[in-house]
Computed example of a mutant assay.
Amino acid sequence: MSKVKYYYDSESLSYRKIERKKRTTFKYAAVFILASALFGFLSVFIASQYIESPKEKALKRELQNMQLQYELLNKKMDQAEAVLANIADRDNNIYRVYFEANPIPEEQRKVGFGGINRYKDLEGFDNSKLIIESNKRIDVLQKQIVIQSKSLDEIAKLAEEKEKLLAAIPAIQPVSNEDLTRMASGYGMRSDPFTKVRKMHWGMDFTAPRGTPIYATGDGVVKRADAGATGYGKHIRIDHGYGYVSLYAHLYKYNVRRNQKVKRGDLIGFVGSTGRSQAPHLHYEIFKDGARINPINFYYGSLTAEEFNKLLEHASLENQSLD
């Protein structure tokens, strides 16, 4: 209950009660309400600026977690790009060089995406730029992986083909050194044993006893096993593919038939002296794209360096051939 206030009236020489006017009371009430409202507004404003609500705290934690995840994603993409760059470098400068394939141009590996806007649906958000850039990096990385994957598929095919080529090229001596009497004559101008005239000797003669095993010098298919070629007597021709053909002449007998597939080192026949031959021996020739070439360069698979040098020395002697 509010206190009653009085004032002294000098005219009546008595105390009179102070009566508050309604207008004044309303004025005070209005001021109080306005002050209360202002105080409340300021309190809410200050609280909103400096005091977080549970929902705001949860959203803030979620945002911080998303930022952390984005940083981790960036680091992973950096690592993936570094690994892919290393693979691309080895692909161009090692694998493709070894298999004689053209390197993939850098602009082809890192080409972007042209044409329509692929990221239109990601526009208009608070972090659209961040989201679009991340998606672009991922898309480019995926495209580079596809290009690299196709390149490695090509390298695998080239490796398989290279393996077949290495297996097909004649690479061993057709008669083993244990069975060899001597290397009678090499490739080049030699004296004919029948006419004594110098003429071109297109192969190498390996002297060995009749019945000595003869081996295929590379993988291939037997194209001939007959005596139908002049001077060669019983002979075998093996097509190795890639333009290579090997010929084995003056055989005693065959161990293969026409169209039979053979592997390097397979027994294909036996030394004899059929056809235009002076004594039991194997006459061995190699063709490349239809032209006869020196067989001396095709023994790397069976001879040591010392044995090869000795063979080279004998092959270079201009003696008399045996056919």
Rank of each mutant, 00 (worst) to 15 (best):
D192P: 02
P193G: 03
P193H: 05
F194K: 10
T195C: 01
T195D: 01
M200V: 02
M200S: 02
D205N: 09
D205V: 02
T207A: 05
P209Q: 07
P209C: 06
R210S: 06
R210L: 09
R210D: 02
P213L: 03
I214W: 15
I214L: 15
Y215T: 11
Y215M: 03
A216H: 13
A216C: 13
G218V: 10
G218I: 13
G218F: 15
G220H: 11
G220D: 06
V222R: 10
A225F: 14
D226W: 06
D226E: 14
G228S: 11
A229V: 13
K234P: 03
K234R: 15
H235Y: 06
H235E: 14
I236E: 14
I236R: 13
I238C: 00
D239W: 11
H240Y: 15
Y244P: 07
V245M: 15
L247P: 07
Y248F: 15
Y248I: 06
A249W: 05
H250G: 02
Y252W: 13
Y252H: 12
K253T: 12
Y254A: 10
Y254C: 04
N255T: 02
V256N: 03
R257Q: 08
R257S: 13
R258I: 11
N259M: 07
Q260F: 07
K261L: 08
K263I: 05
R264A: 12
G265E: 11
G265K: 08
D266A: 10
L267K: 15
L267E: 12
I268G: 09
G269I: 08
F270C: 03
V271N: 10
S273D: 00
S273H: 00
T274Q: 05
G275H: 02
G275F: 01
G275Q: 01
R276Y: 14
S277C: 00
Q278I: 00
A279S: 13
